[in-house]
């Protein structure tokens, strides 16, 4: 593992020229990276450090400057009772929190799986040549383009049990035998959130995959066609491997968003423990309740859980996100 090595290059052979080129590239890389890193550090550094710092204090939103360092107390603390029994308190011992973690992870897993499959199908359709493709492509993007704050409310309106259009449609088409109060109970509300989230973010997935598909050179398919490779085999052998990097990066960003889901849950579900996600709990503690430090601890844990799941995903999916040996 040498530092600043140039990508293996067959064309350039003379060692001297090569090392000069290498230096030039390394210099350029540094110049190219620095502005981006500075921008990111300036924007994100302070807020992130503040947030993590507060999670180790007893900060209250009415008195941020008076925050006292209390160590890991927000995460775990214990008191020994007179009887000798030990009582654990704090985030790590909070069943409501772990329940929210489970809700979130389950939600993220289901929604991102559906979005990946549906996104792939939509992208393949859009990649085909047919009349009106441009219009279809624009139409597809509409769900993603409507502000979440609006679409969440729009769906809650459409899902309303009495004057919602979906119940009416379901009844007319014979799919429902009676009007369902979708957002009233935890089970149906979670289903509703899943449906809306998949509806809303499949375009994001589809568009990124489509970009990946577009970057696959056409002559590969022409060659496969000549060799008589069946289209389904073409998909598994050519399309999928070549589009995988785009798919993987799309999944990573969807995963990040799904694990932080807030708006849809907030608007569409009864505020019960069966549907609460990590972000909803964090918000509650940060702003509604007088527990800013506890909310900060939740945010930090949320960050760690996302980081862990992302790394797990990269590792399991063998995503060569850093370009491997190229």
């Amino acid at each position: 593992m040498a530092t600043d090595t140039l990508a293996p290059s067959a064309a350039v052979t003379a060692p001297k020229i090569k090392s000069e080129l290498m230096q030039q590239r390394a210099r350029a890389a540094r110049i190219f990276l620095v502005p981006m890193l500075i921008a990111l550090a300036v924007v994100a550094g302070w807020p992130l450090i503040r947030s993590i710092y507060f999670s180790f204090t007893d900060a209250s939103l009415s008195n941020l400057d008076g925050a006292q360092w209390i160590g890991f107390g927000n995460y775990l603390r214990w008191t020994t009772l007179d009887s000798g029994a030990v009582r654990y308190r704090g985030l790590l011992a909070d069943p409501a929190w772990w329940n929210a973690v489970w809700n979130t992870v389950r939600f993220a897993f289901i929604s991102v799986s559906f979005e990946a499959v549906l996104g792939m199908i939509v992208a393949l359709v859009l990649n085909a040549e047919f009349r009106g493709r441009g219009l279809v492509r624009a139409a597809i993007l509409i769900p993603w383009a409507i502000p979440t704050i609006v679409s969440a409310r729009m769906w809650s309106w459409m899902l309303n049990d009495q004057f919602g259009i979906l119940n009416d449609l379901g009844m007319r088409l014979g799919l429902l035998s009676q009007k369902v109060a979708w957002t009233a109970t935890a089970d149906t509300a979670m289903t509703a959130v899943l449906v809306v989230d998949i509806w809303k973010t499949t375009p994001f997935m589809a568009l990124l995959i489509l970009a990946g598909l577009q970057m696959i050179p056409k002559d590969i398919y022409e060659a496969a066609e000549i060799d008589g490779v069946h289209p389904i085999k073409q998909f598994w052998k050519i399309t999928l491997p070549l589009v995988r990097p785009a798919l993987m990066v799309a999944i990573i960003f969807r995963l990040l968003d799904a694990l932080r889901i807030f708006d849809l849950i907030y608007v569409l579900t009864p505020n019960s423990s069966a549907t609460k996600t990590m972000s909803v709990m964090a918000r509650e503690n940060l702003f509604d309740f007088d527990k800013f430090s506890y909310g900060s601890a939740m945010s930090t844990m949320l960050f760690l859980i996302i980081a862990l799941l992302t790394i797990l995903y990269i590792w399991l999916g063998q995503v060569r996100f850093d370009g491997g040996d190229r």
């Binding site: 807020p47 800013f292 960050f303």
Partner: peptide
Amino acid sequence: LLTILGVSMFPQMAVLAGLFEL
């Protein structure tokens, strides 16, 4: 690359107070 990604891993409302100060 992971660090860059990590910046997007915090919930929005958690960075709200810090960003506001900044």
